[in-house]
Nucleic acid binder design. Sequence first.
RNA 1: CGGAGUGUGGUGUAACGGCUAACAUACCUGGUUUGGGACCAGGUGACUCAGGGUUCGAAUCCCUGCACUCCGACCA
Length: 421
Amino acid sequence: MRQSQLFTKTRKEAPANEVSKNAILLIRAGYIHKEMAGVYSYLPLGLRVLKKIEDIIRNEMNTIGGIEMRTSIIQTKEVWEKSNRWDDNIVDNWFKTELKNGTEIGLSFTNEEAYSSMLTQYIHSYTDLPIYPYDFKNIFRNETRSKSGIMRGREFYWKALYSFSKDDAEHQEFYEKAKQAYKNIFQNVGIGHITYMTFASGGSFSKFSHEFQTITEAGEDTIYIDEAKGIAINKEVYTDEVIESLGLNKDKIIEQKAVEVGNIFSLGTKFSEPFNLSFTNESGEKQLVTMGSYGIGLGRLMGTIAEVLSDDKGLIWPTSVSPFSLHLIVLGKDKEGDTYKKAEEIYNELTKKGIEVLFDDRDESAGAKFADSDLIGIPMRVVVSDKSIAAGGVEIKERKGDKSEIITIEELYKTYKPNCE
RNA sequence: CGGAGUGUGGUGUAACGGCUAACAUACCUGGUUUGGGACCAGGUGACUCAGGGUUCGAAUCCCUGCACUCCGACCA
């Protein structure tokens, strides 16, 4: 993409009403636009990152047997009354409205009900199980206090997978696979080294749920980490008994602020029971489906990456989620000159090869282009200038380092192959 | 939902109760410049969040509402 066609502009100053680092950087660099507290639009650059994250998650979900679909956002009152979650005294962050004819409806804040009620029409026999449907969709929560930029929004994009299994053993088998898939996801988006599987309260059907917590001061949770084991315990269940039951060494545990970037949860028959989601087993008996839920907030994940992978100059995206693979910058203003032509040629050639290139073809000073490039945070910068041409090619520099080097254009073409995830 | 604070050009800030609401940046014109947010000249752009009130006079003081931010509660 040509930067001259990217309508978003970078800013030197962040809006006065943003304090969180992720929102400040993402707004300054032109990734997101704030509509109101807790509600953000994703601008072209932001959407690219979101889609990269989505693809990484989708790939892992499909690998463990997930089947993508999409449940509706508008849902009727009756469905939620079955699980006793329509009442505002029980769930206080509903967005509710009504149809012209007076029918009460709600905007989904989670998906258990949608899946449980729908699947009663499709699950009848043990041969129909297990299944693992999942969604990417926007979710609405009328938070009394949104905060931390895109880390806790009123409208947010998430992935929710639900597992429907015949019994607990079958459920556990999938649950373990999901753990690994989640680890892979956080590894692949570049925060695996500071993300810990964390034991948290499990509700009525299992002793624990598992949260994936990424260390950052911007987080709302406090976790206790055992580095050696690579796992953590959420403060809400942090007791001597739990430490012991997990076989952790209390003396080596460290306390950290963290943000929950994903969670997996055993639901047992909590939802299959009210919806009578059951099947006929091999013996001809009716049996309730055993469920699990597996969620990741993509906006929060993107915000977390921005929080932890950035410096005073701006964002530093990992290649896997960067909006572009390369930031190609041409210096000099003579658009008819050889340097400019060479840059155009490189842009066309790389684009033809399928490499995602952001081409800064604007009539800006070198300093302005470099500053913008650092702020936008594409992992690799390629500069074409009279100087680089004279030195034998183009200058490449990693966003995260200080060193730059000159390579020939042929080397550039050889090095940058299409970015296959 | 409790507590605290803040609303001024697109953005960031300034202005004692008193001249035509100032400065920077962004934007537009022209010129010059191109390896770390260039320079010169000119220009557009604000009923100071909304509605009331006090006053000869309100961006400034008071009231109400709304919005935003922070702390706490909540987060299925």
